[in-house]
Write a protein that binds this DNA or RNA. Structure first.
Lengths: 151, 151
DNA sequence: TATTGTTATACTCTATAACTATA
DNA sequence: TATAGTTATAGAGTATAACAATA
């Protein structure tokens, strides 16, 4: 602690992108801790959740929904399948494709993990008013949707 | 398009962390495009900005401000130094340390890049009211600050 | 002994090209 | 020829251990 007085990152904080990165790091760190006991990561949980909601989904559809590249999905699904949480069933009409189906264990674990995440987020955001929270959700949803309109 | 009707990621959207990740991806993609003409990345721009605001800063102070590990800062500063945007000056009182100082080119480029980022964010967020934008900034700042209080 | 900057290393996330088997 | 899933690979971002020079 021998340095000059410092101004820290006051200028950077004007930028929405910078603030969002730092806030997301907090939410992400929480998520890692909450999901670890379930043997899940953020991406494996996300994939499991979408498969539970959309049984029979194809891998390319899942990749598109999660906005990830097909090659990156393979390891995620391998992980979920080895853990016995999903199956890759053959599809009668198209022998190239796989139908993604959650197992009973997958459905149960997804529900438990979802509850844990909601509880964790409630605790983390407990100092915010419901209006602040809703506005933040609205803004983030709007930002994401703006890419589909503008481009 | 042979699959079943899909529910997409409706369940995942309940989670603040998931929405924040997707919104951040949009802001981050904008930032990459805006910074590319300046030869900067998000992390090199962030480091440059803090050095411009705090000339004479030590590397360990900069790492702490940006919440990155010291080893990861080395390549970032090498990149800025090779580009002639900062210098690593010797420090008289402590011959182990380096004082980070922006060059005139660094100060000028940082100002231009900052303007470009602000313009880009204004365009991206133009559909949001000033109140929505401010609330989002407040919420993200609060979330980040909550780690310093709670832990 | 402790600290500053550094090297080496590893793990995750992400992105692209090319392969195979089917269509 | 095009598509579904896969492999290989490479680039960022991030984290830890350990080293040399200096305190």
């Amino acid at each position: 602690m021998t340095g000059q007085p410092i101004n820290r990152d006051k200028t950077l904080r004007r930028f929405v992108g910078y603030r969002m990165k730092r806030a997301f790091n907090v939410m992400q760190a929480d998520l890692v801790l909450v999901l670890k006991p379930f043997g899940l990561r953020m991406m494996t949980f996300s994939a499991l959740s979408v498969v539970v909601d959309n049984p029979g989904l194809r891998q390319s559809q899942l990749a598109e929904i999660l906005s990830i590249e097909r090659p990156n999905l393979v390891a995620i699904l391998d992980e979920l399948q080895s853990a016995g949480l999903i199956r890759r069933d053959p599809v009668a009409e198209d022998r190239r494709a796989h139908a993604l189906v959650p197992t009973a264990e997958g459905v149960a674990l997804c529900a438990k993990a979802s509850d844990a995440i909601l509880t964790g987020e409630d605790r983390r955001l407990s100092g915010l008013s419901p209006e602040q929270r809703q506005t933040a959700l609205d803004v983030m949803g709007w930002i994401e949707a703006s890419t589909r309109e503008t481009r």
